[in-house]
């Protein structure tokens, strides 16, 4: 379970004078559940890329439980992410040609040998997400099933935080609700911090705290007072 601290963060895109993201201070306690909303272009994805270390940060600090990831080399940042952050992305980024099970364990297998415990955990997670035929090729699953496989993959290494970027945006309502349900249930069960970028009101409503970004700044924060 990880707590997030952001201070003096500024992200610029080349050619643009105004920062795409400017956050002076932001704190999310460990185990917190955060929804980030906002119009497109408001900086939601940039915020997620920054806190997960997918984008290089040149100004400001981003700390998870006190570990400032902006000071890490890109390789160490990748390693930190692998260990601590479970990612669920809008486009799933599953790998065709591999089975559901192989996709869940791929990040581990590419880094090291899969342990028996991890193998069992992968199977348990797949069953918890409602995927019964774990040997089925990923491209033959429905989109809703694919995103559930991605959720199982994000949880495999017991991350301290799950960051989901528009996890339901490319799904129909029914499948989207299922995935939203799953994210909430599993992160609560595993006790992980949860950060979800979404414009799905149904999903956002169910998270403890919501912030709305506008032009790269925090415009509304439902839990500002609660957090302090």
């Amino acid at each position: 379970m990880l707590a997030l601290d952001v201070s003096d963060l500024q992200m610029h895109f080349p050619g643009l004078a105004a920062p795409v993201l400017a956050i002076e201070r932001f704190h999310l306690p460990a185990g917190g559940q955060l929804a980030i909303t906002g119009a497109s272009g408001s900086g939601k994805s940039t915020f997620v890329n920054a806190i997960t270390g997918l984008e290089n940060v040149t100004q400001g600090k981003i700390s998870w439980n006190g570990m400032d990831i902006t000071r890490l080399s890109s390789g160490r940042r990748d390693a930190f992410r692998a260990r601590n952050i479970g990612l669920v992305m809008q486009d799933f980024h599953l790998f065709p040609g591999l089975s559901a099970f192989d996709n869940v364990v791929l990040p581990v297998r590419l880094a090291r040998r899969l342990t028996v415990e991890e193998r069992e955990r992968a199977l348990a997670l797949l069953s918890a997400t409602g995927i019964n035929r774990v040997g089925q090729k990923i491209e033959t699953l429905s989109r809703g099933e694919m995103q559930r496989v991605a959720v199982a993959r994000a949880l495999l290494q017991r991350p301290g935080v799950i960051v989901a970027d528009e996890p339901t945006a490319s799904l129909d309502r029914h499948a989207g609700n299922e995935v939203a349900e799953l994210l909430l249930r599993l992160s609560a069960e595993q006790g992980t911090t949860l950060v979800v970028v979404t414009h799905d009101a149904f999903l956002a409503e169910r998270l403890g705290r919501r912030i709305c970004l506008e032009s790269g700044r925090v415009d509304e924060d439902s839990g500002e007072s609660a957090a302090q």
Binding site: G75, D78, R81, M89, H93, P107, L110, A111
Partner: peptide
């Protein structure tokens, strides 16, 4: 990019 996002070592 996805492999790196998932934390695969370089």
């Amino acid at each position: 990019g996805a492999l790196r996002a998932l934390g695969t070592p370089v």
